[in-house]
Design a protein around this nucleic acid. Structure first.
Lengths: 126, 126
DNA sequence: CTTAAACATGACGTTAACGTAACGTTTTAG
DNA sequence: CTAAAACGTTACGTTAACGTCATGTTTAAG
């Protein structure tokens, strides 16, 4: 509906608390937006997507500090070639880190499976 | 060499600090072992494997409390059928949780890849 | 216009997983 | 035997990511 929303609506639609939003603002994770002299903050729709991306990165195990180091890469639209290259290299680092995590988890999965098989065997033997 | 080691050696061989070991002891994650009246603690080789397993579970994102809830499953040798079944069901829960994590990470990976491809395209266009 | 709901700001509280300092024994190298 | 290294115990400190007041202002409903 409206172009701009206040913090309460943003929190509700993004599924976070007011405190979280203010926390992220202080960490520079989320841009603010004051309006007129009233003191209240108004946010654009884009803030929702940003909060959701932050949550996604968090669930992947990144700390807020790490998130703040890369969050802009997902929303910025760098025009200079050098900026593009930089973004690309960081994204590639992320990719390989992700691959490592997946590998570790996969190994853990197979360990688990082995354990389960062993117990199953035992159960049938006894 | 020796059957029993003191805390310093255990820490060194397991790659953790003394503080960590004591912390885990208080949480019940690692069994103690006093000896004679001298007050010092002596640990068996098995403690190393236990610390390593704890570390592995931690790296998978489990909290110490969660770890303490399952760590025994990896070392106990339940003799009763009912115990075996219980262990099995918990291990299976772990397996499905692990699968979920892998799925989430895989999706993230493909998102990342898409991002990278888009940037690559851009770079070639410009 | 009045009052409750929403918002702003500041500050103290909380949990997890140890770090680090302080201080007194025990073990060990020389 | 003596000094240094290792150990035990207690207790306060630290970081992350917010939660939870407390208090004052702004907005919105009736």
């Amino acid at each position: 509906m409206s172009e701009w929303m206040r913090i309460g609506e943003l929190a509700g639609r993004a599924g976070v608390t007011l405190r979280t939003i203010r926390h992220y603002e202080r960490l520079g994770l989320l841009p603010k937006g004051e309006r007129e002299g009233n003191g209240q903050h108004y946010y654009p729709e884009a803030s929702i997507a940003r909060l959701e991306k932050i949550d996604q990165l968090k669930r992947l195990g990144l700390t807020l500090e790490e998130v703040s180091g890369v969050i802009d890469l997902y929303f910025s639209d760098p025009s200079r070639r050098s900026a593009k290259r930089k973004v690309l290299s960081i994204l590639r680092q992320h990719l390989s880190q992700t691959d490592e995590k997946i590998t570790a988890l996969t190994k853990f999965r197979s360990d688990l499976q082995a354990h389960i098989d062993r117990f199953d065997q035992w159960l049938n033997d006894s």
